[in-house]
Amino acid sequence: MAYIRLDQVHVSFPLYDVTGRSLKKHLMGVRTGGVIAHGGCTMVQALNGVSFTVNHGDRLALVGHNGAGKTTLLRVLAGIYEPAYGSVKVEGTIAPLFDISLGMEMEATGYDNILLRGLYLGLSKHEIRQRAPEIAEFTELGEFLNLPLRTYSLGMRMRLGFAVSTAIEPDVLLLDEGLSAGDASFMAKANARLKEFWDKAAIIVLASHSEWLMREVCDKAILIEHGQVQYFGSVDEVLAVYQQPAAVLG
C-alpha cells in the first residue's frame, strides 16, 4: 500500500549573493572575523512545520499562490530536497513529472531521446526497448524518430516527452501543473492516455493553478500559504477558502 507521511517538515533555503558564493571572500571573511562573509547569506523559510498524510488511492491537489511553497513541497515529496527538520516517509515508487522535456538532447535522435528520457524516469534499458514500439506508435512521429530532435517542431517535442513520460507505472505520481501534449488535434488521444495513466497511479499529488484540472483529477486538497498548511479538505472546500478575500488568512 502506497502512502506519504510528512511530519513537521521544515525547509529553508540559503540565498547566496556573489559574496556568499566566493570561496576567496569566505576565507578572507574568516580571517577578518567573518564580517565580510556575513552579508552573503539570507535564509528563506520555504516550508514551516508541514505535516499531513496521503493514503493509498488519494488524489491530492496543492493549492496556493505563487511562491507559497507548492513546488518546494513537491520536491520534498520526491526526495530531492531533504528537510532540515522533520521527517518524510514515502512508501512506493515515486515519479516526479515536473518538466516532460527535461534532459532531452537536441542533437540526439527521437529514439535516443526515448531511451535517455526513459532512463531518467528510472526504467531499465530492457524495459525501454520493450515499450519503445508502443511509445513510437503513440507519438505518430514515424520516420521523424530517426532524425535529431532539433528538426522537430515544439509540438512534436512535446508529444515525444508526453509519450515517454506516460509510459511509466509509478505508485506515486507528482505533477507540477498538468501534462501538456502539444497541438489540439492530438489532445483527444492524449487525454484518453492521460486518464489511463492517472488511474494506474496509487497516489497523485498535483500542484496547479487550474481549478478545472484540480476538480477533474483530485478529491482532496491542501491550501498552502507562506510555507504552512492552512487548510486540508475536499477540493471544493479548499478552493472556497482559497478564493475568499484575504481577511480570513490575514
Binding site: 520526491a78 530531492i80 515515486i94 527535461l102 531518467y120
Partner: peptide, 9 residues
C-alpha cells in the same frame, strides 16, 4: 543542476 532539481536519485 537541472537534473538534480527535478529528478530524485
Amino acid at each position: 543542476e537541472a537534473l538534480i532539481r527535478q529528478l530524485p536519485g
